[in-house]
Amino acid sequence: MENPQNRLALSLLAYAAQKDVAPERLAQVSHIDLQALRTNPAETLTPKQFGDLWLNAVHLTGDPLFGLHFGESLQLAALGVVGQLVQSCATVGEALTHAAAALHLITDAVRMQVAQSDRSFTVRFLPDPALEKAPVLQQMLELFMVFTLHEADGLVLKKISPLAVRLPYELSNPGEYERVLRGRPEKKPGEYALEFDRRYWDEPILTANYELQSLLLKKVNEQNRHFEQAKALNERISHYLLTNAYLGIPTLEQMAANFNTSPRSLQRKLQEEGVTYQQVADSIRKTLAVNYLSSGRYPVKEISYILGYNELSAFSRAFKRWTGTTPAHYQKGRFSA
Rank of each mutant, 00 (worst) to 15 (best):
F196I: 06
N173R: 11
Y169T: 00
N173C: 04
E176Q: 14
S161H: 10
V180S: 09
I160S: 02
L171Y: 03
G183I: 12
A164C: 04
K187D: 01
S172H: 14
L157G: 09
S161P: 02
F196Q: 03
A164V: 03
A193N: 05
D197V: 04
A193V: 00
E186W: 06
V165S: 03
V156C: 11
E191C: 10
K187A: 00
Y169G: 00
E170R: 11
S161Y: 07
R166H: 12
E178H: 13
G183N: 15
R182M: 03
P189K: 00
G175P: 08
Y177D: 11
L167M: 08
K188M: 15
L155N: 08
P162V: 10
R198S: 08
K187M: 00
G183R: 12
R182L: 06
R179K: 15
K159P: 04
V180L: 15
L194M: 05
G154A: 09
V165C: 08
R166S: 14
E170K: 09
L167A: 03
S172D: 15
P174R: 09
V165R: 03
S172N: 14
D153P: 08
E170W: 15
G190R: 00
P162S: 13
R179L: 11
R184I: 11
L171S: 07
I160Y: 02
A152V: 11
R198M: 11
E195I: 14
A164L: 10
R184Q: 15
R198Q: 14
E178I: 12
G154T: 07
K159F: 08
Y177H: 11
G154H: 12
A152S: 14
E195G: 09
D153G: 07
G190I: 04
E176D: 13
E186A: 05
R182P: 01
L163A: 10
E178T: 15
D153E: 15
P185Y: 03
F196A: 05
Y177S: 07
G175H: 05
R182K: 03
P185N: 06
E186K: 05
A152E: 07
P185F: 04
D153A: 05
R182N: 01
V156M: 01
